[in-house]
């Protein structure tokens, strides 16, 4: 891990990885290019500004949830998060089943985590440091100073998809959203005997 101050060795590595990725991009347009640490940190600063704007908007909870869903759809790679949470069972699903599931997942996850935001008016998120993980992306660490509850660490896993930085995972005090949702979606799917359509219907009302 290194602090936000420039680390030439890491930057050089990031640059080389970026250059290598560029050549691949011409051959395979959808291949993920390694993201530089600076780009990831800059992206998270924008994301943090988005979050501050939503939680301090003074809007009603219902309106905040709408804003949060738009934010989530815009800043994170929802389809990849949804598919990662579903895991292997998704491979045998039809294109339509998968599309419906991803759509339902986006609403479900925005409502579930958006609801947690209502207590966070006045909270301050500051970016502290970042770590470069090559083709896996960049981890950006931040610190949340919340009113009326203990401060906590919030880590953002940023990846690059089609040349643009996107959120992949949120790690709150060590607890990964992806790990949590993988368990949740797995348990839900099991409770419907592996029926993705029934699980999708449940997600729509969760």
């Amino acid at each position: 891990m290194h602090s936000i101050t420039k680390n030439p060795a890491l930057q050089r590595r990031a640059f080389l990885a970026g250059a290598g990725g560029l050549m691949l991009t011409t051959a395979l347009p959808t291949f993920a290019v390694a993201l530089t640490e600076d780009a990831a940190v800059g992206f998270i600063r924008t994301v943090v500004a988005d979050v501050h704007k939503i939680i301090n908007s003074g809007k009603s909870e219902a309106q905040m949830l709408v804003d949060f869903e738009a934010f989530f759809g815009n800043r994170s790679e929802v389809s990849l998060i949804a598919k990662t949470a579903l895991g292997a069972p998704g491979r045998s699903a039809s294109r339509n089943q998968l599309a419906a599931y991803i759509q339902a997942f986006q609403g479900y996850i925005s409502r579930k985590y958006g609801r947690q935001f209502r207590d966070f008016a006045g909270a301050e998120i500051s970016v502290i440091s970042s770590r470069y993980a090559g083709s896996k992306g960049v981890l950006v660490k931040s610190y949340v100073n919340a009113q009326h509850r203990s401060d906590y660490d919030l880590e953002w896993w940023v990846i690059e998809v089609n040349g643009r930085p996107k959120m992949f995972d949120l790690i709150i005090e060590g607890i990964s959203l992806i790990s949590t949702e993988r368990i949740e979606i797995g348990a839900m799917l099991e409770s419907f005997g592996g029926d993705i359509d029934k699980m999708t219907a449940k997600l729509l009302v969760s």
Binding site: M1, A32, L80, K83, T84, L86, G87, G90, R91, R131, Y132, A133, G134, K136, G137, L139, E155, W157, I159, F168, D169, I171, G174
Partner: peptide
Amino acid sequence: ELVVEDLEDPFAFDY
């Protein structure tokens, strides 16, 4: 801390 080398491949389920 999360070890960078231990991170799963984020694109493993990019089917």
